[in-house]
Write a protein that binds this DNA or RNA. Structure first.
Lengths: 132, 132
DNA sequence: CGGTATCCTCCGAGATACTG
DNA sequence: CAGTATCTCGGAGGATACCG
């Protein structure tokens, strides 16, 4: 028996963690929702379909790569639909699915909480930074 | 005038983005909430105070560094309280503040949505992957 | 117009070792 | 026990160029 106990324990913990996360659907969805850009992209679609370029314009600062990646992930999860109109130049519209729409009220609730409590949070931050 | 227009545009976009994010309190809070470990740590505290080591045990796979970092961030945001009992060895308990508690129902709602719709999401993923 | 393909950088997660 | 200090390494994400 070589003394691989440390490495084995590490491996064991990783497996435990993976098992835990795999068993928890919330985490798998949070992975998508917690992404830096996901919220902003979803927000642009709440009031109707938007073209690729429109989204890029509204969500200023996002790179080509990340916008595409975010849209693909959301499409894959069935939260939005990608509709291609064959013409020159090509036109692509993104729309929330009903599944996507069902998520909006909850995100709004989260946003409401944020707006309602932002003062308290910022005060807490200031107090913490001052005490530090 | 050197031709720095490209670099300037880049800079401009970053500033635009930063201004946008800075103006949006939801994003500043989402930064905290969307963290990989935040949800799990908050979850361990919903049913009462927990010690540092207890949290580390429940949230298996988290490194020392990330646990401390997560706890600090949440403490800074006023979502939980860190209470040190001077004894040897030291004892540190973490408790949700009332602000932290007020967030739980919303997170539960999100979790509820995830559990309710996970089948549909996973089906969408399978369909997308198959079509691809 | 709405993307890919490619390279490249940087920073943040994790491992490890040490301390009050 | 509950952390800090330090290094290092991979991969997320940005810039750039090109394509149908």
């Amino acid at each position: 028996m070589p003394t691989k106990t440390v490495a084995q324990q590490r491996e064991q913990r990783k497996n435990d963690y993976n098992a835990f996360v795999a068993a928890c659907p919330t985490n798998k969805l949070m992975d998508t929702l917690s992404d830096k850009w996901t919220g902003l992209v979803l927000a642009t679609l709440t009031r109707g379909p938007r073209r690729y370029g429109e989204i890029a314009g509204i969500v200023a600062g996002i790179s080509n790569k990340m916008l595409t990646q975010t849209l693909r992930t959301l499409e894959r999860d069935g939260l939005l639909e990608r509709r291609v109109t064959a013409q020159v130049p090509v036109r692509v519209d993104y729309t929330l699915t009903s599944l996507g729409h069902s998520l909006i009220p909850i995100l709004n609730l989260l946003e409401g909480w944020a707006e309602e409590n932002m003062d308290e949070v910022f005060a807490a931050r200031a107090a913490f930074d001052a005490a530090n």
